[in-house]
Write a protein that binds this DNA or RNA. Structure first.
Length: 546
RNA sequence: GGCCCGUUGGUCAAGUGGUCAAGACGGCGCCCUUUCACGGCGCAAUCAUGGGUUCGACUCCCGUACGGGUCACCA
């Protein structure tokens, strides 16, 4: 009786019952084995790699099983919320190719299990909070922050576990209904706490990636509702994932230690627990050891970093997939052409220790990914990136669309395409020699070629140059000049008898390459020449004739 | 400190009692090659540690060390 009175005192506006709510969110009609899961980012304005990492897992297990993947905004902490952050999350997920079946969108909610923003679900949580109060399992606590601090200090001094539990909860738990009425009348703020049970029992949860997790049963009087009536993560998680009918909960391992609270809630409500999947923390190398990626020190933690660098979403997926499932790389080698969505992802193959984010490996993967793209797709993606991050190049690309496309095709249609491009940012650097506006000579001419030789070579080259020559005819001329100037036609001849030659054809072609592209490492000279066009070629060559 | 998780080469990692301990990135070397690439081949390099259990342990158990997480009206 007392509990009912208390519940009505605390929640005078709540008229619905848990049954009413349950009825609004029926079991989903899905094929056997379908996974329903979600990501629940909080709108802090910072979306990080770990968010994507977990999102990919959720996306894969749900869509591979013909289930449902949704986006829920966990905005219960209004202090941390940043203007426009919801949009930031949605845009980032969209950019990186993570698609939701339902949930929060930029324009509102989509789906029958909403609202998908936790603050808008306040009324729902209150119904269940009231029920818990009626059952005598929750109570209002008027402890101030200072009082809680004092308790903690005392506990630390006594080497006891910190928190509100056992005898430390007594003061609040033993308040009479009149005390509570008076406190409320005086305008004192309160939180709703769960009544933890004093016990030495253990709980055991079968985690889909870690196997058995065993830990002491919860004994804490943890907070269910904060003083503004909004739930804590723990309460919101349990209520939401139950009502939204999630079958799997994918989240970082930092949640393992609060698992006992969640188990306690699922059990007291009598609800089935979802399958938990606690994933590893992303690490970074530093000095001799690993450490957690840090928001402050590591720019590569932010998803925006990869956008700024112009690493394609496909490359990020392939990279994360290699971290997530170690058999992905083998699968990729066996199926070089396949879409990564066809890779059979499994939770069981997940690694449970912290994976290290290796940017070199990412770049390598990125090269392969871009290497496999048709030139037109590269053109489109690169241009799109430039329009946002490098407007100078966006202008160039649009000024010379055909030349750019031809340039992107150099060496691409061979059986083994070149892998010059690794990121859109780096592409701006690599492609610079195709435009007079950005052309720059950065490498030195080979030491084997003195000034005299350089002048002679280019003069002869220019004299004999015929833009209509095919590749073979062109190369014959290069050979002729090379020989004429006393350079070996075969690199080995020079290597074996260095005293007989000034150098080899390696050096003469190098000169040519540097004159045309500004560097020693660039694609096939004949092909490049035909992308550049006769005028530019002659112009660049003639600069070295005197 | 309590509770929990983890530890295979420089890095990502296969591996579930018997393997010469896969593979990938990076490094080095060689080969292919008319340039630049691409590619191919090869080399070096790993089971944190001490005890058990066992005919046999990277695999199972206990301890130690190290790393990580968490102990909020943050998620």
């Amino acid at each position: 009786m007392n509990n009912i009175e208390l519940a009505n005192l605390l929640f005078p506006d709540v008229t619905l019952t848990p049954e009413d709510i349950e009825a609004k969110y029926p079991q989903r009609q899905l094929p056997d084995g379908a996974c329903v899961t979600r990501i629940g980012p909080s709108p802090t304005g910072f979306v990080h790699l770990g968010n994507l990492y977990n999102a990919i897992i959720g996306e894969r297990i749900s869509h591979q099983s013909n289930g449902v993947f949704f986006l829920r905004i966990e905005d219960t902490d209004n202090k941390r919320e940043v203007e426009g952050a919801v949009e930031t999350v949605i845009n980032a997920m969209n950019y990186f190719g993570v698609h939701f079946d339902e949930g929060a969108t930029a324009t509102g909610d989509n789906g029958a299990y909403g609202p998908y923003r936790q603050r808008q679900r306040k009324d729902i949580y209150q119904v269940f909070a009231k029920q818990l109060t009626e059952r005598g399992l929750a109570y209002p606590c008027f402890l101030t922050a200072e009082e809680i601090d004092e308790i903690r200090e005392q506990q630390t001094a006594n080497k006891e576990n910190p928190g509100i539990y056992g005898k430390y909860a007594l003061k609040s738990r033993s308040l009479s209904i009149d005390d509570i009425k008076n406190n409320i009348a005086e305008g004192k703020e309160w939180v709703l706490r769960f009544k933890g049970v004093e016990t030495d029992e253990y709980i055991c949860v079968e985690d889909a990636v870690r196997g058995k997790l065993q830990m002491p049963r919860n004994n804490m009087d943890f907070v269910l509702l904060k003083s503004d009536g909004i739930p804590t993560y723990h309460f919101a998680h349990v209520v939401d994932d139950h009502l939204m009918r999630s079958t799997h909960v994918v989240r970082g391992e930092e949640w393992i230690s609060s698992l006992p609270m969640h188990v306690e809630l699922f059990n007291t409500f009598g609800w089935d627990m979802p399958v938990y999947c606690h994933t590893a923390t992303l690490m970074k190398i530093e000095g001799t050891g690993k450490r957690k990626l840090s928001k402050r020190k590591d720019p590569e933690l932010a998803l925006s970093y990869y956008q700024q660098e112009g690493i394609s979403p496909d490359a990020i997926w392939e990279f994360l997939l290699t971290l997530l499932n170690s058999n992905f790389e083998e699968w990729r080698i066996a199926n070089p052409e396949a879409d990564y969505h066809d890779f059979p992802y499994t939770l069981a193959k997940m690694n449970i220790s912290g994976a290290l984010v290796d940017l070199d490996k990412l770049r390598n993967i990125s090269k392969d990914v871009i290497g496999a793209m048709p030139a037109q797709k590269i053109f489109d993606n690169w241009l799109k990136w430039c329009e946002e991050y490098n407007t100078e190049y966006a202008v160039l690309i649009k000024k010379y669309p055909q030349r750019t496309l031809d340039a992107l095709n150099v060496g691409r249609n061979a059986k083994k395409p070149r892998k010059d491009l690794e990121t859109w940012k780096q592409a701006c650097d690599f492609m610079s020699f195709y435009y007079d506006e950005t052309f720059e000579i950065t490498d030195e001419m080979p030491q084997e070629c003195d000034e005299e030789t350089i002048k002679a070579f280019f003069t002869k080259y220019l004299e004999s140059y015929n833009h209509d020559d095919d590749s073979n005819a062109w190369f014959e001329k290069v050979r002729a000049i090379t020989e004429e100037l006393g350079f070996a036609l075969r690199p080995k001849d020079y290597k074996n008898n260095p005293e007989q030659y000034k150098g080899s054809i390696v050096h003469t072609t190098n000169m040519l390459r540097i004159a045309l592209t500004g560097r020693a490492n660039a694609p096939d000279i004949w092909e490049v020449s035909h992308v550049l066009g006769e005028d530019i070629v002659k112009n660049r060559i003639s600069k070295h004739c005197n």
